[in-house]
């Protein structure tokens, strides 16, 4: 029997998760190693199906403690034996403690930005001046090269736009965030996905600044969500790979 692992926290005083139903309807229990506590439930099987119920159960358990402490959430689908989990916690104790300290008192806020202008990129002056649209008189070779040139130009313009948006957003929200993780995507309308680690005492200020920023840019579409447990600020998987000889 394996354990499904939900989150890790720094003590045993917060026990809300034990009253929440876990993945596959199983009861959640807390397991402590040294100063660290993990929330787990028994799991029969080798794989966790990605269903609405399971995903919500995972998030519900992690979220249950968010009001009292900032947990380090495990990725959905994490299974381990009790021995492996004990070994992980013992070997990574120091690193996990420092991660817990870093996210302490914070939540994650998510901002995704869509640039609808990518559909009309050929009307952007930078595109027109660098690219002749008329390829009707070209041979196959020239048409191919023009098509490639077009791809390069579109990516260049989209990259510049995404960088401009990222820099603008950072400038607007910097006073309210402890750390950010920004992903720029230049081949989609969704040009930017940002995760912001925000101290809970700065949350109102963050929301106010975000609202102002949105009003400033009617050319962009925003999808904002949160507060989340700090999923984007806890990746420390590399250290564990050598522990079990996995590369």
């Amino acid at each position: 029997m394996k354990l499904y692992v939900y989150y890790l926290s720094g003590g045993t005083s917060v026990r809300e998760a034990e009253s929440v139903s876990g993945v596959a309807g199983c009861a959640v229990r807390l397991m402590s190693v040294g100063q660290l506590t993990v929330a787990v439930s028994e799991f029969a099987g080798d794989a966790v199906a990605i269903t609405r119920e399971n995903v919500l159960a995972h998030e519900r358990v992690v979220r249950s403690v968010l009001r009292h402490t900032t947990p380090l959430p495990f990725r959905f689908g994490t299974l381990a034996t009790e021995a492996q989990l004990q070994s992980y916690l013992q070997s990574q104790q120091e690193l996990l403690q420092s991660k817990l300290q870093f996210v302490s008192g914070c939540v994650e806020m998510s901002v995704k930005i869509i640039w609808p202008g990518v559909d009309t990129i050929e009307e952007v002056p930078a595109f027109r001046t660098n690219h002749s649209l008329d390829s009707t008189k070209d041979g196959a070779g020239a048409a191919f090269l023009k098509a490639k040139r077009r791809e390069v130009l579109v990516e260049q313009i989209a990259t510049a736009k995404a960088a401009e948006i990222a820099s603008w957003l950072k400038a607007r929200l910097a006073p309210s965030i402890r750390k950010d993780q920004v992903t720029i995507r230049t081949r989609d309308k969704l040009v930017l996905a940002a995760a912001h680690l925000v101290d809970q005492s700065f949350l109102d200020n963050y929301r106010r600044e975000l609202r102002k920023a949105r009003d400033e840019r009617p050319d962009l579409h925003f999808l904002t969500s949160g507060p989340w447990p700090p999923y984007s600020f806890v990746n420390i998987d590399l250290e564990f790979k050598t522990q079990f000889g996995v590369s």
Binding site: V5, L8, D46, A47, V48, A49, I50, V55, H58, E59, L72, P73, F74, R75, F76, G77, T78, L79, A80, Q84, L85, Y88, E108, S110, A195, W228, Y231, S232, V234, N235, I236, D237, L238, F240, K241, F244, V246
Partner: peptide, 16 residues
């Protein structure tokens, strides 16, 4: 959030 991010115990994660 839950599928793309979070702590990973490398080699032990199993997603369907």
């Amino acid at each position: 959030h839950v599928l793309n991010r979070g702590l990973v115990i490398a080699g032990e994660i199993t997603i369907a």
